[in-house]
Amino acid sequence: MLQHGGWECLLNTIEACSIHAWPQVSDHYPFVYCVEKLSYEDKHTEWNTCFKKLNLDPKPVIDCYTSGMGHKLELQYADEISALEPPHDYVPWVIVDGQPLYNDYTDFISFICKAFKGSNMPQACLRVSHPITSPTDAVKSFNHVSYKGEEGVNSKATLSEIISSIVASWMIL
Results as ranks from 00 to 15, higher is better:
residue 4 H to L: 08
residue 5 G to S: 12
residue 5 G to W: 09
residue 7 W to E: 11
residue 11 L to D: 03
residue 12 N to A: 13
residue 13 T to Y: 05
residue 13 T to S: 11
residue 18 S to T: 03
residue 18 S to G: 07
residue 18 S to Y: 06
residue 19 I to P: 03
residue 21 A to F: 02
residue 24 Q to W: 00
residue 25 V to H: 06
residue 26 S to Y: 08
residue 31 F to C: 03
residue 35 V to D: 03
residue 35 V to E: 00
residue 36 E to R: 03
residue 36 E to N: 02
residue 37 K to Y: 05
residue 42 D to K: 13
residue 42 D to Q: 12
residue 44 H to V: 09
residue 46 E to D: 14
residue 53 K to L: 15
residue 53 K to V: 14
residue 54 L to S: 13
residue 55 N to A: 15
residue 56 L to V: 14
residue 57 D to W: 06
residue 63 D to N: 09
residue 64 C to I: 04
residue 65 Y to A: 15
residue 66 T to F: 06
residue 69 M to W: 01
residue 70 G to S: 00
residue 73 L to W: 05
residue 82 S to V: 08
residue 82 S to W: 04
residue 82 S to P: 04
residue 83 A to V: 08
residue 83 A to H: 10
residue 83 A to L: 10
residue 87 P to E: 12
residue 87 P to T: 11
residue 89 D to M: 11
residue 89 D to F: 10
residue 91 V to K: 02
residue 93 W to H: 07
residue 94 V to M: 06
residue 95 I to A: 09
residue 97 D to H: 00
residue 97 D to K: 03
residue 99 Q to S: 04
residue 99 Q to T: 06
residue 101 L to S: 06
residue 101 L to W: 03
residue 103 N to Y: 09
residue 103 N to C: 10
residue 103 N to W: 09
residue 104 D to F: 04
residue 107 D to S: 07
residue 109 I to F: 02
residue 109 I to W: 04
residue 112 I to L: 13
residue 112 I to V: 15
residue 113 C to T: 13
residue 115 A to N: 12
residue 116 F to P: 07
residue 123 Q to F: 13
residue 124 A to S: 15
residue 129 S to N: 15
residue 132 I to W: 02
residue 132 I to F: 02
residue 135 P to L: 07
residue 135 P to G: 08
residue 137 D to P: 00
residue 143 N to Q: 15
residue 145 V to H: 00
residue 146 S to V: 03
residue 148 K to Y: 12
residue 153 V to Q: 03
residue 154 N to L: 12
residue 156 K to V: 05
residue 156 K to H: 04
residue 157 A to S: 04
residue 157 A to H: 03
residue 158 T to F: 01
residue 159 L to G: 05
residue 160 S to C: 02
residue 161 E to H: 02
residue 163 I to W: 01
residue 164 S to I: 04
residue 166 I to C: 12
residue 168 A to E: 10
residue 168 A to T: 13
residue 172 I to Q: 15
residue 173 L to P: 14
residue 173 L to I: 15
